[in-house]
C-alpha cells in the first residue's frame, strides 16, 4: 500500500477513537467540576461524588441493581452454560438457534411490553423479582453464545474416550467439560452482569409502580429526563469505570468474549 493511503487510514482511525472516547471523557472531567455545569470549568471538586454517596435514592437504586444483576447472572449463567453444552453436543435445529438469537436482536421495547403484558395478564405482582425473571431471558442468550464459542474448539472424542474408559457422564461433565468451559462461563457471567447492571427499558417496564424497585439505570433515566443534575456525571463516571473493568476482566478470562 502506498504510504499516503496508510497515513490517512491511521489518521482516520485516531479520529474514530477520539469520536468514541471524547464524549465519555467529557463526562468524567465534568464530574470533578465544582459548579457541576458543563458550561465552564470552575475548579476541581469531589463534592458530586459526596452527593452521590449521601443520596438515599441512589444508594437504594444501586442496591436494587446489585440484587437484580447478581441473581439474574447466577441463574442465566447456570442455564446458559448447560444450554450451550447441550446445543454443541447434539446440534439442534434452526428453531432453537432462532430462540437463542431472538433476545439479542429483538427491540428492547418490544420484549419489555411483551413481558409486561404477560405478567399483567397473569396478575403477577411486579417488583425486583419480575425484573430478575426478565433479565435472565437475554442473559441466557449471551452466556450461551460465549460458552458455545469456547466449545467449538472442543474435541468431543475426549468426551467419548472418558465415557468409554468407564467414567459416568456426570463425572465426565464435572472433570472434563466443566474445566474446559470454565473461562467461557466466567466471562459470560461477567458480561451478563454488565448487561444486567446497564439494562434500562425492560427493567423500567417490569419493575411495577412505586419507588421500591427502582434500579440504577431507571434512576439515571429520570435524572436525565427530568432535569439534568450535576451528580449524574459522577454517577456516569462510576458506572462506566465499573463496566470497563468488568469487560476487560471478561476479555482477559476468555479471549473473544467481547467479540474480539
Amino acid at each position: 500500500m502506498p504510504s499516503p493511503a496508510r497515513f490517512w487510514l491511521g489518521a482516520h482511525l485516531r479520529l474514530v477513537y477520539l469520536f468514541l472516547y471524547v464524549p465519555i471523557a467529557v463526562l468524567m472531567v465534568l464530574s470533578f467540576n465544582r459548579a457541576g455545569l458543563p458550561t465552564a470549568w470552575t475548579g476541581f471538586s469531589l463534592k458530586w461524588y459526596g452527593a452521590l454517596a449521601e443520596s438515599q435514592a441512589i444508594i437504594n437504586a444501586a442496591l436494587n441493581t446489585l440484587i437484580v444483576a447478581v441473581i439474574s447472572t447466577v441463574l442465566a449463567t447456570l442455564l446458559g452454560a448447560l444450554l450451550a453444552v447441550g446445543m454443541e453436543y447434539r446440534r439442534r435445529g434452526p428453531g432453537l438457534e432462532a430462540m437463542l438469537f431472538a433476545p439479542m436482536i429483538i427491540p428492547d421495547i418490544v420484549l419489555a411490553i411483551a413481558l409486561l403484558s404477560f405478567f399483567t395478564l397473569l396478575d403477577f405482582t411486579l417488583g425486583l423479582h419480575s425484573i430478575i425473571l426478565s433479565h435472565v431471558v437475554f442473559n441466557i442468550a449471551f452466556v450461551c453464545a460465549v460458552v458455545r464459542t469456547r466449545l467449538r474448539s472442543f474435541d468431543w472424542a475426549v468426551f467419548e474416550a472418558s465415557v468409554d474408559l468407564g467414567a459416568s457422564e456426570a463425572t465426565t461433565f464435572r472433570r472434563i467439560i466443566l474445566p474446559m468451559i470454565f473461562p467461557g462461563v466466567l466471562a459470560g457471567a461477567m458480561l451478563a452482569f454488565t448487561l444486567s447492571v446497564d439494562e434500562f427499558i425492560i427493567a423500567y417496564f417490569t419493575a411495577g409502580a412505586g419507588q421500591s424497585s427502582t434500579t440504577l439505570p431507571m434512576q439515571i433515566y429520570s435524572m436525565i429526563r427530568f432535569g439534568v443534575t450535576p451528580e449524574i456525571n459522577a454517577m456516569a463516571t462510576v458506572v462506566m469505570l465499573v463496566s470497563f473493568t468488568l469487560v476487560l476482566l471478561a476479555q482477559r478470562a476468555n479471549k473473544g468474549v467481547v467479540g474480539v
Binding site: Y21, I24, P217, I220, V247
Partner: peptide, 11 residues
Amino acid sequence: VMLPFWSNYLI
C-alpha cells in the same frame, strides 16, 4: 473499539 459498546447505553 468495542469497550464503549459494552458500557451503559443511557450514559
